[in-house]
Design a protein around this nucleic acid. Structure first.
Length: 432
DNA sequence: CAATGCTCCGATCGGTGC
DNA sequence: GCACCGATCGGAGCATTG
């Protein structure tokens, strides 16, 4: 969030890869965007040069380095024979980082997926973990949360939506959790995009938008679909991007969590799996042959994302949208949002109708660029920012861009499905 | 009882203001 | 240059679940 224009400028300068000067630590190889951070790192982590014993003065650093070399830090037993050796038996598939428990690996996965499914209802800040949001609320919105009605969970975002109404929960993403066949380097940034795609193309049944009932502030309603930051870059660097920027990610990060609960009811999970299996395969050929710039990349992304699984059903969300999902999404009040949008809406894309947005890829990343793709990467067929706000009537096939719509299940044409509240993160710029 | 989920805590780092 | 704030992340303990 940039309160002033010069902040934005400086932010862009610092965040821009070509302009940013990285401070590289010779000791451990870590890089820092700012000299301040680099210096602090030197003091905190490499204070051994100043006379502090390395193994005692910088345990965190040693732990960090231990993670790099797949070896536990001395503090965990290597240097202390009296302590039982504890192995980091569970490694991350995407970065080789090791953890003590599986749950740590799962939790760590958020780093790679970039998923930020926990939305602060007060400032629309999004977090990848519930405790982050909880801490944020306690620290930043203590007073406001104090005004919450009694019994309000620590994540007020869930307040309007009873946990059993729209059960959504973190589930090992069939896309991002099965990437063994994909190189880790590539997946580092890739997985984030895949999550964006998957989470919309494959909404979880029963997943009402957790923010659907959030009233009041625009931020509350628009805080979804944050642009996923690239690895090792500060998320603030991506807060403000022009809607038509080629790099603009789709605002497709539909939350799959219930903000008050992270537990799927078993029945919903089963229902989802059944949907995936029973749903008629999407007309991928037609989709792929469309002029949508997003079609090919989407397929590629998801195709790789599912790893060895070539099940085309996974390439798009099962059409069997549950009534629960619809009931949840219909609760959304997007009126203020639609009125807020300062630009025209792009034309309908079949993918949009399938429960969510798909990636809008810059031409350079599109292996099979569509002839109709605009140079901005936001062609009329490329569902870019705010395509979620496409009014229902826009889903009526309108020429080549909508040729595939008629083949979609009716559920995808529902206003509820087409009006997901996944929204860009740079909305914050308009908040000011 | 193991697996999992939730939460607290500390460390680290980027951003900002003085 | 420094202090402060907030976000991110992993470690760990406790509670819950199957």
């Amino acid at each position: 969030m940039f309160h002033q224009q010069d902040h934005l400028k400086s932010q862009l300068q610092e965040s821009h890869p070509t302009n940013r000067q990285l401070f590289h630590c010779q000791e451990c190889g870590k890089q820092y965007n700012t000299q301040l951070g680099y210096r602090r790192h030197l003091v905190a982590a490499h204070s051994a040069a100043a006379g502090l014993p390395c193994t005692e003065g910088a345990p965190s650093l040693l732990e960090h380095l231990g993670g790099h070399i797949d070896r536990p830090p001395p503090s965990e037993g290597n240097t202390n024979a009296t302590l039982p050796v504890r192995e980091r038996k569970y490694s991350c598939e995407r970065c080789d980082r090791r953890f003590y428990t599986r749950k740590d690996v799962r939790r760590h996965a958020v780093v790679h997926t970039g998923r930020r499914d926990f939305l602060c209802p007060r400032c629309a800040q999004r977090f990848g973990r519930r405790d982050h949001l909880t801490r944020h609320l306690k620290k930043s919105h203590a007073q406001e949360t104090g005004l919450m009605p009694p019994g309000t969970p620590s994540t007020p975002v869930a307040t309007p939506t009873p946990p059993n109404q729209c059960p959504v929960k973190e589930e090992p993403n069939p896309v991002t959790s099965d990437m063994g066949s994909v190189s880790k380097e590539g997946m580092e940034t890739f997985s984030r995009d895949m999550y964006n795609s998957y989470s919309l193309a494959n909404p979880v049944p029963g997943m009402g938008h957790p923010h659907s009932l959030m009233q009041g502030t625009l931020s509350s309603s628009m805080g979804v679909g944050r642009h996923m930051p690239p690895p090792s870059s500060h998320p603030h660097h991506h807060h403000l991007q022009p809607p038509a920027a080629p790099q603009q990610q789709p605002y497709s990060n539909m939350s799959r969590y219930q903000h008050g609960s992270t537990s799927y009811p078993r029945a919903d999970v089963d229902s989802f799996l059944l949907d995936l299996q029973s749903a008629p395969p999407p007309h991928l050929s037609a989709v792929n042959s469309s002029t949508s710039i997003s079609a090919s990349p989407q397929r590629e992304v998801l195709g790789e994302g599912v790893g060895a699984s070539s099940d085309p059903h996974l390439l798009s969300r099962s059409p069997a949208v549950s009534s629960t999902e619809l009931s949840c999404t219909t609760n959304m009040d997007l009126g203020p949002l639609l009125g807020f949008l300062p630009f025209s809406l792009p034309a309908y894309s079949p993918h949009m109708g399938m429960g969510g947005l798909v990636m809008s890829y810059p031409p350079t990343t599109t292996s099979t660029p569509s002839p109709s793709s605009s140079s901005t990467g936001l062609s009329s067929q490329a569902p870019g920012p705010f395509t979620f706000f496409q009014p229902p009537q826009a889903h009526v096939p309108q020429g080549p861009g909508a040729h595939n719509h008629s083949q979609l299940p009716q559920a995808y044409s529902s206003p509820a499905m087409s009006t997901s509240s996944s929204l860009p993160h740079y909305y914050q710029a308009f908040q000011q």
